[in-house]
Design a protein around this nucleic acid. Structure first.
Length: 585
RNA sequence: GCACUCGUAGCUCAAUUGGAUAGAGCGCCUGACUACGAAUCAGGAGGUUAGGGGUUCGACUCCCUUCGAGUGUGCCA
């Protein structure tokens, strides 16, 4: 049981002793204190129940405080408008730290009912290199996967790559006009991008070329041997390039079920939708319309034009007979439910597709997949330095690989200046680690819904709230153990904390499990990122205030345990953010 | 027009989901290194949370409204 849970029970017992029955809708809660000046934990019980009890909040709080006899665990006091404040004793903090240090999972408890969760993230279009815009989905998705796994869920990471869409007609068209085989071997993604751009530019100017590209796609989808061979080749080359970048980012997938994997399922699916009456023909296309069960304003299948609510259907077969991504997405849900028995699907996708997902989720429900929890984990836009969105269509987004290279270059300058490492190999490896992790940490430390400015200089800034700060904290917490020439044997029973900085360090450490859980409540990696920064700050404070090696006996051993526990939590927490730590820097 | 997402210190961002005097970093100012690693720490200045109204013991958070930004709005994904 966690401390807040123990305290909640005590408060409930105190309420019972005062003959106060808590109405069902009121949830008495004990939370970590918002401000440490008031104690470690706080409860708003008295303020919530004051009216009900016919007493002033402060009087009721005082009566509760009198009931809650102070003991080994904590001191109880009343403050402000009627808060109950709990301040844990040093002994209680020492006990908590002892338990956490001795546990292999760092006191992060698993969820009660583990779920099977499919995580749909990254999903780049093949034949196009990833650009900066792909950072958000890729990094947030990987982080959520790691956190969910840590909490005991079964996670299936699926890279639903765009390997069947319009761009393939274009690449094929340009490929046939002349592909540079030599370059294809050396820089496959760059050559494929060149082909795509050539076709894209040409078809913008010439309607007939656009038709030719479309025809190439139709041939591919109908099984034309030559186009299929080109497609297979494209896929292999793209895969090679993508694998390299994912390895660099330390991101991995269990499956690569791209759009093409569902091609054969699409026609039967549309037939099923029509037979069941969910879909019907409209303007030559096959569409799913509103269920007419909700008000138009909240209906994803309605849209208001000139003051009138009109149908805004989901098109599952286009007028030309081709299927689109909506169809594929429904087929994908079916596959994940039937083959993988999933309980949940989390889509880590740009917020601009919100409307699409509302429709997809509604159709899935109407198809009978209402027991599956479908979540659109949406995120905002990455902006340029001018404050305007980096436009995807402009085609001039910086490529992800170049961004990583730039970040590594910037990191290298500081490494040369400050690092204690000796060899060129070590320095190069450290610069790579710092550069890549800085980009990842920048992403994860932002609220996913807010837009943020893509500023490379700030991203790789090496002081302040950054990845290097966290890495440095870890290195500092480890280096002290290298000073112990004979090594040391630590034992939990000798842990005894007295100094405020020690207590605060342990207080921060004890929050780890709750912070990890919090990430999944609203799919918010930035909460963990912020917590780790706070933890690191507390560690540096502790480290300056409390000499470790110069102290003696139990104090020394206690502080060494705090250092060890800190390094373990930092490493574990950073691993959840997909950030690896160096031992020296 | 309508819908969605936003608007917090000069700048970049938080705020444990409705809690107490809204917190960090950068930048600025003052201190601390022949070092348990200064990629650090201790401290200072900086706010009418875009404006207005409402709900409540209590609002950055919920509701209404005005202003501003971004996005979406029938066969691209």
């Amino acid at each position: 049981m966690t401390i807040p849970e123990i305290l909640s029970e005590k408060v409930l017992a105190a309420l019972a002793a005062l003959d106060l029955e808590v109405p069902e809708r009121m949830r008495i809660q004990v939370t970590t204190a918002a401000d440490l000046r008031f104690g470690d934990f706080q409860s708003n019980a008295a303020m919530m129940l004051a009216k009900f009890a016919g007493k002033s909040p402060r009087d009721l709080a005082q009566e509760l405080a009198d009931q809650l006899s102070s003991g080994d665990l904590c001191e109880v006091s009343v403050a402000g408008p009627g808060f109950l404040n709990f301040t844990l004793t040093p002994k209680a903090w020492s006990d908590l730290a002892r338990t956490q240090w001795s546990s292999t999972d760092l006191s992060v408890s698993k969820v009660d009912s583990p779920q099977t969760i499919v995580l749909d993230f990254s999903a780049p279009n093949v034949a196009k290199p990833m650009h900066v815009g792909h950072i958000r989905s890729t990094i947030i998705g990987e982080c959520l996967a790691r956190v969910a796994t840590k909490l005991g869920h079964k996670v299936i990471k699926d890279n639903h790559i765009g390997d069947w869409g319009t761009q393939f007609g274009m690449v094929t068209w340009a490929w046939k006009k002349g592909v540079d085989e030599a370059r294809l071997e050396e820089e496959p993604l760059q050559e494929l991008l060149r082909l795509y751009r050539a076709a894209s530019d040409a078809s913008k100017e010439d309607e007939s070329i656009r038709e030719e590209c479309r025809a190439e796609l139709v041939k591919l989808q109908q099984g034309d041997a030559e186009n299929a061979a080109i497609w297979t080749r494209c896929l292999e080359l793209s895969r090679k390039g993508l694998d390299a970048i994912y390895e660099r980012l330390d991101v991995s997938f269990d499956h690569w079920m791209g759009e093409s994997a569902y091609n054969d399922a699409l026609a039967p699916l549309v037939a099923k939708l029509q037979e069941s009456g969910l879909a019907r023909e409209s303007d030559g296309a096959v569409c799913v319309f509103s269920s007419e069960t909700v008000k138009p304003k909240g209906d994803p299948f309605k849209i208001n034009r000139d003051g009138e609510w009109q149908d805004y259907p989901m098109i599952v077969r286009k007028g030309d007979g081709a299927f689109n991504y909506a169809t594929t997405d429904i087929a994908t849900v079916e596959h994940r439910v039937h083959e993988w028995k999933t309980d949940q699907i989390w889509y880590v996708v740009d917020f601009r597709q919100g409307g699409h997902f509302e429709q997809l989720f509604d159709v899935s429900k109407r198809l009978g997949y209402d027991q599956v929890n479908l979540v659109h984990v949406s995120f905002g836009t990455i902006l340029g330095k001018d404050g305007k969105p980096l436009k995807t269509r402009a085609g001039d987004l910086p490529q992800l690989e170049d961004v990583l290279d730039d970040a590594v270059k910037a990191a290298r300058i500081v490494v040369d200046e400050k690092s204690r490492l000796d060899t060129e190999e070590e320095k190069a490896a450290l610069a790579e680690l710092i550069g890549v992790n800085s980009v990842k940490f920048t992403e994860l430390s932002h609220h996913r819904m807010s837009d943020y400015v893509f500023d490379l200089d700030k991203m790789v800034a090496l002081e302040g709230d950054t990845a290097p700060y966290l890495l440095y904290s870890y290195v500092r917490s480890r280096s002290i153990f290298r000073k112990l020439e004979d090594g040391v044997t630590l034992s939990a029973e000798n842990l005894n904390l007295t100094e405020p900085a020690e207590i605060h360090m342990v207080r921060m450490l004890s929050r780890y499990g709750d912070q990890v859980k919090l990430v999944l409540e609203d799919y918010r990696p930035n909460l963990l990122a912020t917590y780790l920064l706070e933890l690191a700050r507390a560690f540096h404070s502790f480290f300056e205030a409390c000499p470790v090696l110069k102290s003696e006996g139990q104090t020394r051993e206690s502080r060494l345990i705090v250092c060890d526990l800190t390094s373990r939590v930092l490493k574990d927490g950073l691993a959840l953010l997909a950030i690896d730590v160096p031992e020296r820097m």
